[in-house]
């Protein structure tokens, strides 16, 4: 086992994977505890099946595929989404975020929560993780054409919701410029 702990660069890569998995899981469910459970279950399931990957990208695709299966299983068990009023406010994000940043995140998260779950998944996998359409199709086990059509519909819906709930944000107000990546 020692080999893995001595490889600092590899640890950094894995650290990046964990953060990305958690962020993605949170974007899917908007529940920090469930997101943590999803990542934990993803890793637990991954332990059960040895697999060899050609590169880090392939490992990433597979991890998200496993997490999607966990997410589907959760849905089968729950048969319901987290109600909007139970969503966790972005004020939990920590003291580093300004009020403007918190408001922006809250507004967009609320809008995203109104999308269909499968649309939201596709948007977040592409926008946050920068997966290709083909990779998303593999992760979600759906045709690439379906990825593209759902992406288009999801973005259109998101735009309409934001125009309705936050016209200045949808139109490109000044708020976004206060955000520092």
């Amino acid at each position: 086992m020692g080999f893995f702990w001595q490889n600092k660069q590899f640890e950094q890569t894995l650290n990046l994977h964990w953060q990305r998995l958690y962020r993605q899981a949170y974007a899917w469910c908007h529940d920090p505890q469930l997101a943590g459970d999803l990542v934990q279950e993803t890793l637990s399931r991954s332990c059960r099946r040895p697999y060899q990957f050609e590169n880090d990208k392939a490992l990433g695709v597979w991890l998200y595929k496993v997490m999607n299966n966990c997410w589907r299983d959760h849905h089968r068990q729950q048969r319901e989404m987290v109600p909007l009023d139970e969503m966790h406010m972005v004020t939990e994000s920590g003291p580093d975020l300004s009020l403007a940043q918190q408001q922006l995140q809250h507004t967009v998260q609320q809008a995203m929560a109104q999308l269909k779950a499968d649309h939201r998944q596709i948007i977040t996998l592409i926008d946050m993780e920068e997966f290709s359409y083909t990779e998303v199709a593999e992760i979600l086990d759906i045709p690439t054409g379906t990825v593209m059509s759902r992406l288009s519909r999801g973005r259109q819906q998101l735009k309409l919701i934001l125009e309705k709930t936050s016209p200045s944000l949808a139109a490109g107000g000044t708020t976004i410029r206060s955000i520092k990546p």
């Binding site: 962020r23 922006l104 995140q105 998260q109 948007i123």
Partner: peptide, 10 residues
């Protein structure tokens, strides 16, 4: 906007 929305999840 989507990227920023989930940049710092709780």
């Amino acid at each position: 906007l989507v990227r920023l929305a989930y940049q710092n999840p709780p």
